[in-house]
Write a protein that binds this DNA or RNA. Structure first.
Lengths: 343, 343
DNA sequence: GGCGGCCCTGAAAGCGGTTACATGTAAGCG
DNA sequence: CGCTTACATGTAACCGCTTTCAGGGCCGCC
């Protein structure tokens, strides 16, 4: 039989109200009473039942984290950031992998309001805005990562994808590459769109014509990167560099290049995006745009908890992080010889 | 103002008991009444409050997942398996990264019993057995992954680490290697111990003497793998192959080899353990032992949910998976030339 | 026609806490 | 000395739901 506050009260010869006051530090409790209560708790091995508490306080100290796919190496770091900050603040996190499926997203959103979570961190959701609006109507604060939520306006944390992509592409251009291919993310996703836009921006600033044949669409997986580049090689469209929309795709692309006998970076330079943990250890080590993933997770969670406590910045608040170019071994200046044969 | 069951009852002109019966399918409800209730729910946008429900039913439909570090690429797949199965069964999962810190593990365990989770999945815990025993006393079912919990006996899911390690090492031996180094996991962890044991077993079966200078200890990270092998190279102890206790370490080791001018696998063969997602895409693609991570997550969760429902197999039940050798490009027969120079 | 059942429903007692309000006591003060 | 005041505690309502128990109709059946 688990001890309840009632048992503690009885044993300490006080009322449950006093025990509760003692537990929460609300209201005064005499030193001697305090001592008796401590004793009782100790002896009984009492732990307050948070469910009962939540029922009356209407706070569960639980945050929900909705994300597409934890299997993508980009996310674990984010999760860690969220987790750690939540922990510091006495919150606990409910993990929901929604697999990029709008129906599941909606289902989960429904469930969350029933579960009375205190707040929700929505990362890269793909569902319609009405779905989110409906959810928000329950009054649960939300913070969004990489997905703009206009109505109701929710705090947004993201990196400047466009600029990052531009920097990545400019890096390649500065190395002398003119035929830069791009493996994009899933079409329709804002992130993919932004990164593609950054790529085009860099091209156009450098006066290089945009060639849509050089853009293959992927879905942020290694498989797609591999297949995309394999297919591109089959078309015999020449290129000397690749900017992949994320590291996974870059790694897949590199594998496709290697399997077809090309060398990276001697024949083709490759740059990715994200700077996942293993990017430094692939061979060649991957040049990429670092996203401060862990930090973003922390910051987003901080904003969320603030929102839970009713402390919000102005509406439409945003925290934007900048991507940082990390030059490693997968990119190098275009070789003169290479210019001639262009792969 | 959020609608409660009381509001629904009022609007449908029935009692809360009837609404509850309708909601849970417990007890009969007349067709017409049913219809009125549906209407009311619809109009009010009512969602039952699971917190209140849990208070009385004593079931939260929440499972806790305690793991060392989600950042290790081995885990996300596991999490996914857990997540998906939990989802199918109507459970939700609370994520706790304990960072391999016994104190945090204990803290979390405490919190979980207060949070009234229905069950807990403990993966690779390092805390003392008394801690776990104390937790178990709260009556919360647990299932353990990769850590034997003897008292109270909890179902255990794991792979046969020893055998996997033996197979990995045997693979190297069969390729003609005799000087096989090993990057171990953190000493003291059962998993590390088992994998080391498997390595030694293979050596001894093949009549190869065990040389402790060939064993460097790591902690399952790339950094440690890198540094371990770098250090080993400095000692000038010759070796022609490496069996790393996990893929991360293998990748780090490969990087160290490459950075020092060695080629993998021409100069040194490398095999890992885990078969993380990216193992197939490193270059060279990594030979490794595949753990059916996703499946293990599912199976463990299944056992846990069964336990929650009081359906347990016999005491001391175990599910053991077998590791499978996946031969890729990072291992090859020892070259004649190499035998002479032995790195 | 009376009666045992079967359906369907409602009243009310909790689940384990929190908290507004009331109460009792002793100190402070003119 | 009587009155306020602050402190320490108790009483009881309530959070939103489930569930036991006890009917009230209505049927069939003897």
């Amino acid at each position: 039989m688990k001890a309840t506050i009632y048992h503690v009260a009885r044993r300490a010869r006080v009322s449950t109200a006093t025990v509760s006051r003692f537990l929460n530090g609300t209201g005064p409790v005499a030193a001697e009473t305090r001592h008796r209560i401590e004793q009782a708790i100790q002896v009984l091995g009492y732990r307050p039942n948070t469910v009962a508490r939540s029922l009356v306080t209407k706070a569960t100290h639980t945050l929900a984290l909705l994300m597409p796919d934890i299997t993508n190496p980009f996310f674990p770091d984010l999760v860690k950031g969220v987790q750690l900050l939540a922990d510091e603040r006495g919150y606990t996190v409910l993990l929901c992998s929604v697999a990029g499926d709008p129906a599941r997203e909606e289902e989960y959103l429904e469930m969350l309001s029933a579960k009375q979570v205190d707040g929700a961190l929505l990362v890269g959701l793909v569902c319609g805005r009405e779905t989110i609006a409906r959810f928000a109507r329950h009054g649960i604060p939300i913070v969004s990562l990489d997905r703009n939520i206009d109505y109701p306006p929710a705090p947004l944390v993201h990196v400047n994808h466009r600029k990052g992509a531009r920097i990545a592409t400019e890096h390649l251009l500065q190395l002398g590459h003119r035929l830069v291919a791009h493996v994009s993310g899933p079409i329709g996703l804002r992130v993919s769109h932004e990164r593609l836009a950054g790529y085009r921006e860099a091209l156009s600033r450098a006066g290089v014509a945009y060639d849509r044949r050089l853009v293959v669409s992927g879905d942020f997986t290694e498989e797609a990167g591999y297949e995309g580049i394999e297919a591109l090689l089959h078309t015999a469209t020449p290129f000397t560099a690749i900017f992949a929309a994320n590291d996974l795709a870059a790694i897949g692309a590199t594998a496709a290049l290697t399997d077809s006998g090309r060398r990276v970076p001697e024949d083709v330079s490759v740059v990715g995006f994200d700077d996942i943990r293993l990017a430094a250890y692939t061979s060649p080590a991957l040049t990429t745009i670092r996203q401060p993933t862990y930090e973003m997770g922390r910051r987003a969670t901080e904003l969320l908890i603030d929102a839970v406590h009713g402390r919000m910045l102005g509406p439409g608040q945003q925290v934007v992080f900048e991507g940082e170019l990390i030059v490693r071994a997968s990119s190098m200046p275009i070789a003169a010889a290479q210019q001639a044969k262009t792969v």
